[in-house]
Write a protein that binds this DNA or RNA. Sequence first.
DNA 1: GCACGATATGTTAACGCTCACACTGCTGTG
DNA 2: CACAGCAGTGTGAGCGTTAACATATCGTGC
Lengths: 327, 327
Amino acid sequence: MTDVARLAGVSHQTVSRVLNGNPQVHPDTRERVMRAVAELNYRPNAMARGLVSRRSRVLGVVSFDTILFGPASTLLGIERAARAAGYGVSIATLERVDRQSVLEAADNLAGQGVDGVIIIAPQMAAAAALHNLPKGMAAVAVEAGQDSGLPSVSVDQIEGARLAVQHLLDLGHKTVWHIAGPNDWLEARDRIEGWRETLTKTGAPVPAAIAGDWSAQSGYAAGVALAGQPEVTAVFAGNDQMALGLLRALHERGLRVPEDISVIGFDDIPESGFLLPPLTTIRQDFDEVGRRSMATLLQLLDNTTPSSASPVAPILVTRASTAPPKR
Amino acid sequence: MTDVARLAGVSHQTVSRVLNGNPQVHPDTRERVMRAVAELNYRPNAMARGLVSRRSRVLGVVSFDTILFGPASTLLGIERAARAAGYGVSIATLERVDRQSVLEAADNLAGQGVDGVIIIAPQMAAAAALHNLPKGMAAVAVEAGQDSGLPSVSVDQIEGARLAVQHLLDLGHKTVWHIAGPNDWLEARDRIEGWRETLTKTGAPVPAAIAGDWSAQSGYAAGVALAGQPEVTAVFAGNDQMALGLLRALHERGLRVPEDISVIGFDDIPESGFLLPPLTTIRQDFDEVGRRSMATLLQLLDNTTPSSASPVAPILVTRASTAPPKR
DNA sequence: GCACGATATGTTAACGCTCACACTGCTGTG
DNA sequence: CACAGCAGTGTGAGCGTTAACATATCGTGC
């Protein structure tokens, strides 16, 4: 910076002013400084800057299983929103999801000097850990339910499930079976709740939910079980991967989708449109989740009370795996 | 730090020594300092530390399309390796892949003060940009070919293609068709090369490669074209998503896999085992890629000449989508 | 013509840490 | 008994930036 100042014939403070867009600099001076900056290929030192301003302009994201479509998309949405706001993003991926791992990850990020963290905590264990975060740490939770003690952003899973189930009921199905995600995931619980509520509200019988673990394999297993029950005409799978496994199981048993059984998924993974048949599913707007998380975090950093908006609304994507019942 | 020093009854320098594991501190002193650290809940300031040591212990990763299985897995592998080495990871995701975006992303990361960057650059355009990186920036390329001018780490795509094609030839197929990835991806080019080479070497005829874009949709389109050609008995899809689309197209045309046509994919995405039929494919070891990238970057930071190891070997995962030809 | 605010720039002191060096006792050696 | 050597600790400077304040220059209104 001193070099730039010398070359431009000004003080280092003026250089600092130019770099920070201070309006009180003469245009000519600004020009000269900019030229010197370019000529010397000067780049401000982020650490010196952060040391005095107490802001690193980097935020941390704690996440789990970033290979899965949901978390990966959320991460991407956050990263986009952060970049738009002039922030960098540092990640910490959890190997296991328990209280300690979450706290360790948050601690690591804090040690890197992030200004705040966004925690993608769809599991109960992760959400529980949020109460123990180092105090004074600006943190926003994503998909963590209301009782995490943190400002939080999420997609309206209950509404998503309602959309899925209502769609099937509207087609004329008497009821809808459900392959649920793991019970320690909040999203799984909410989808079960939305499913059950919608059935109950319309007076439809509520079959037992079948336990899955998000994997295609578990969907397949559920499909094997369901294929043996002739009364099953419509199935709401907790995510698209399980729907995929389900489709395979039904196909193997000679059941046609949607003629014999309607199937609806959740997530709208890129492959969903190309399954056999193309999958009707529920889409979540992860970019919006990213934007809201970022906005909330920025409010936290500004010391304004974060405005808690309503959850992000999912939408129904109708393809070819659902139809009126034929049997 | 001063507070800790006061509480422990030592100088700030001794506190620093304890924190950095300097062996020349008396065990009793160390103990007292540690206790003070714990009591005050003190955490060293990363920026002050980085300012003087000129090391942030954070590295940057430039990546594209982190929703795709390959890049997401690579990112995860790098993150794991970085954590093991005590480094944090900052990400920069590209919206578009061209020279300028790559340089901008690298610049952003540099502005955040990362010690070095790992660039996942599977596309020609990205690889080309690597020559223009700010000099003095420690950088490692992943999947960028040899001529990026950077130390680089990659999976042996040619070998992977060879494994796939040889597997089909060994089953008795006269030749193997290929649905290729986009021509501006290095991985796509290498897989084409491995495919062509293997066919040529064994004297098999080399059909024209069919252009795809990694998506299930393009695999479907290719499948529609191939289903009309009775001489086609074996297809090597450039990735598993295209294989998925292909399976759907073949199924729709009444062609059975593997009885009528054998299909092999590439990547081994989590769903591959649950397609109809379970997909035989080629698996890449992304953790190993992450470890090697990290190791290379650390060597670069140490000013040792990076040891350029041989590419990571992929492996064949045999499932149910390939069989000897029947027609 | 002169005080006065506005505009533009410079000066100095932190920020919290590590590095280089100086210092203090103590032990062991000739 | 003096002195070197060493373990253990303290002192002061400086990393590159911004904040706070001080200063210089310039019109402007009376």
